[in-house]
């Protein structure tokens, strides 16, 4: 596990319509501590996912640097990402999807399968190890993707709206499961979401990004102890934070001219 340092990072794309540089992310700096769970919130299209992809090495910053501190195992992967959309290999059974990471690094498939059961149990999918993804629901698929990422044991886990296409009730179950998994694995996690409730419920800290180009607007500590349970949502601390986040996001929506 490790911490992440994002230092003065900017990202621009060339816009072919206007023939000008389009700035997506503007001079963003923040730190994520070892074992910490940080939720990243922001209005649609503000660049949350782009930021996550830069940390994951899928995109390069135009300016600035991203570094990792306290890396425990220099051979381990720095990051693995759980993507928003279905990302399982459809021709692989659940268990073979889960072992994909270490299989690439050259592990023995048989041994890996034994070890994979641990992670399949962790995400509550024992009994489904031999199923093909086409036979799973959206929520189950995302849990396999989470198991796959955990199996690879990255220093930092990145999650890009992983529950966006899951129905509300399954979503609630998965949030509680993720919270439990995080407590158990103590994996540094960055979690991008649109959902305020989810962001608060899961996080140690919340980062709110401004509308495009994204800057760090506000960082909010969620001083609510763990383990957390569902009824936390009606507590005063939770409701206070909720109100603060909502106000902050509304400001950004107004600034982006989305209220008329």
């Amino acid at each position: 596990m490790a911490g992440v340092r994002v230092d003065n990072v900017s990202k621009s794309f060339f816009d072919f319509k206007t023939h000008a540089e389009l700035k997506i992310i503007d001079n963003v700096s923040f730190d994520v501590k070892d074992k910490e769970f940080v939720s990243i919130l922001g209005v649609s299209g503000c660049g949350k996912s782009t930021l996550l992809y830069m940390i994951g090495g899928h995109e390069r910053p135009t300016h600035g640097t991203i570094s990792f501190s306290d890396v425990k195992d220099s051979k381990a992967h720095l990051t693995n990402t759980v993507f928003q959309e279905a990302s399982l290999f459809p021709w692989r059974k659940v268990i073979d999807n889960v072992i994909f990471g270490p299989e690439i690094t050259g592990g023995n498939k048989k041994e890996l399968r034994t070890k994979a059961m641990e992670f399949i149990n962790l995400v509550g999918l024992s009994g489904f190890e031999s199923a093909y993804p086409s036979h799973l629901s959206g929520g189950m698929k995302q849990r396999v993707a989470i198991a796959r990422a955990l199996m690879n044991n990255p220093e930092v886990l990145l999650m890009d709206e992983p529950f966006a296409s899951v129905d509300a009730q399954t979503r609630m179950i998965m949030q509680e499961q993720l919270l439990r998994i995080h407590q158990k694995s103590e994996k540094t996690t960055l979690f991008v979401t649109h959902n305020i409730d989810e962001a608060i419920f899961l996080a140690d800290r919340l980062m709110i990004l401004s509308a495009r180009p994204a800057k760090v607007k506000e960082i909010i500590e969620v001083n609510i102890g763990k383990p957390r349970t569902w009824d936390l949502r009606s507590s005063k601390e939770f409701v206070d934070i909720y109100g603060r986040v909502l106000k902050s996001l509304r400001e950004e929506l107004e600034r982006a001219g989305l209220f008329h």
Binding site: N80, S87, G101, I104, N152
Partner: peptide, 20 residues
């Protein structure tokens, strides 16, 4: 997305060819 996943797990060209 599958290509992104393969790269996320550091699959090289040969592995992308044979495993994807």
């Amino acid at each position: 997305t599958l290509m992104k996943v393969a790269k996320d797990y550091d699959a090289g060209d040969m592995q992308i060819f044979f495993k994807v």
